[in-house]
């Protein structure tokens, strides 16, 4: 009872500006937490969608070094990288871009009928940094 009375007295002594601030603080805090949560969830969804799309496209690597499949993959990877970037995942975006460079190099190698060893080494290096499609 005593506490309630003192809170009431404190409230009545506050100026209008003070009362507005006291009311707004919890609203702002709750709103910020909510916005952060929704944003994180959206980012996670974007990230999951980016990973799913990339993992689908990555299956083209199963065709060994067929020039048409490698060319097709090279056409798909820029959008994959952009999806990661949109999800705020710059690391995976960079990894996909590295793969894109390796795939483009492989296509050139195949078109020029050159030794595939160096191009394969680049593919190996790029593959080691790729987002994990084996567990998700």
């Amino acid at each position: 009872m005593k506490t309630a009375a003192s809170v009431a007295r404190w409230w009545s002594n506050l100026r209008v500006v003070g009362k507005v601030v006291v009311v707004l603080i919890p609203i702002v805090v709750v709103g910020a937490v909510l916005a952060f949560t929704l944003r994180t969830r959206e980012t996670n969804n974007q990230q999951a969608a980016a990973l799913a799309a990339f993992c689908d496209d990555e299956q083209l690597l199963q065709t060994s070094f067929r020039i048409n499949a490698m060319s097709q993959l090279a056409g798909l990877l820029p959008a994959d990288a952009q999806r990661f970037r949109d999800a705020g995942d710059t690391q995976d975006a960079a990894a996909v871009e590295q793969l894109l460079a390796a795939v483009q190099n492989m296509v050139k190698t195949l078109q020029a009928h050159r030794d595939i060893g160096p191009a394969n080494a680049k593919m190996a290096h790029a593959a080691d940094a790729l987002p994990d499609c084996t567990s998700g």
């Binding site: 690597l61 070094f65 009928h113 030794d115 394969n120 190996a124 593959a127 084996t134």
Partner: peptide, 18 residues
């Protein structure tokens, strides 16, 4: 390979030639 796709593809492919 199944647990290390695609990395192991290129380890194996290091023994390939055209």
């Amino acid at each position: 390979l199944g647990g290390h796709y695609p990395s192991y593809v290129y380890k194996i492919a290091s023994f390939w030639h055209k």
